[in-house]
């Protein structure tokens, strides 16, 4: 595939990148199978052109965007982010994308909008039927969605996203566990009420709406205090908000993060 024109970002980490094979071959994309190698094997069945994204709900100008339109919406940046999975592993990924805020600005959110819901592509002909309640949905509070770190990614490693990574367009929220970063998005809806999210519906005691990376709030079945960086043998301590506390801690001031996990 072709190289994407990108500009570097001051928000990137300087940590060494995870290997490309790991980034594109070790994935959670349950629609294509629950083994980490399944998405890379099966996602080729998904058609990602043409692709439109509807942005609707509590906005002044609801619109459908063609994916090629979205690629020209804002300058594409390379954002090197840490990715922390709720399962206890992590990577460093060079995403290509633009801030979600740039898209939301286009549709003019109404004052009543408090949350953003993301609905992802679901095609039962090529995807798994059971496991979760499809389509996979995710959600953010509007201020989280507008945060400069929150990215709509269209590429990785300087090229268009491979399908197993959520082509053609996915969310990346680096201070939250990886499952919050919904893949292959088809609808973005602004709402007044907190949207239902796929993993929260499946096991509310295990996956909260916020799901901020937090070493002090353990998952009921495993610790979140440490993580294994893919490619390394020894585990390392997990950082509060995955190391983005300086930028995002203020979003949660006064909130009990044990309660709003």
């Amino acid at each position: 595939s072709t190289r994407l024109q990108t500009v570097p970002s001051a928000l990137s980490t300087t940590e060494p990148l995870s290997e490309r094979d790991a980034v594109t071959g070790y994935n959670n994309f349950y629609e294509f199978g629950t083994d980490k190698a399944d998405p890379a094997r099966n996602a080729h069945k998904m058609e990602v052109r043409p692709w439109t994204v509807r942005v609707e709900g509590l906005v002044g100008k609801p619109r459908r965007f063609d994916i090629d339109e979205l690629l020209r919406l804002a300058p594409l940046e390379e954002r090197i982010y840490r990715l922390r999975c709720v399962e206890g592993w992590s990577m460093v990924v060079p995403w290509v994308g633009f801030p979600l805020a740039a898209l939301l600005k286009e549709v003019e959110p109404l004052g009543s909008a408090k949350y953003v819901e993301f609905v992802t592509h679901y095609d039962p002909k090529i995807m798994i039927r059971d496991v979760l309640d499809w389509p996979y949905t995710e959600g953010l509070r509007l201020d989280e969605a507008l945060h400069p770190l929150t990215l709509l990614a269209v590429g990785v490693y300087g090229e268009a996203l491979p399908k197993q990574n959520g082509a053609p367009l996915r969310l990346v929220v680096p201070w939250k566990y990886g499952f919050k970063s919904a893949k292959s998005i088809v609808t973005i809806r602004l709402t007044e009420k907190e949207p239902a999210t796929a993993w929260n519906k499946f096991a509310p005691q295990e996956y909260g709406f916020y799901s901020n990376v937090n070493p002090e709030v353990r998952h009921p079945r495993w610790s979140q205090a440490t993580e294994r960086r893919i490619g390394e043998l020894r585990k390392r301590p997990t950082q509060m908000f995955n190391g983005y506390a300086e930028q995002v801690a203020s979003l949660y001031q006064g909130m009990d993060l044990k309660k709003f996990y």
Binding site: D21, A22, G25, Y26, K36, A37, W89, R228, I230, L233
Partner: peptide, 14 residues
């Protein structure tokens, strides 16, 4: 043998 050959995927410990 897979461990030796580094052929156990991205997360060989898992």
């Amino acid at each position: 043998l897979g461990w030796q050959a580094n052929a156990l995927g991205a997360n060989p410990i898992e």
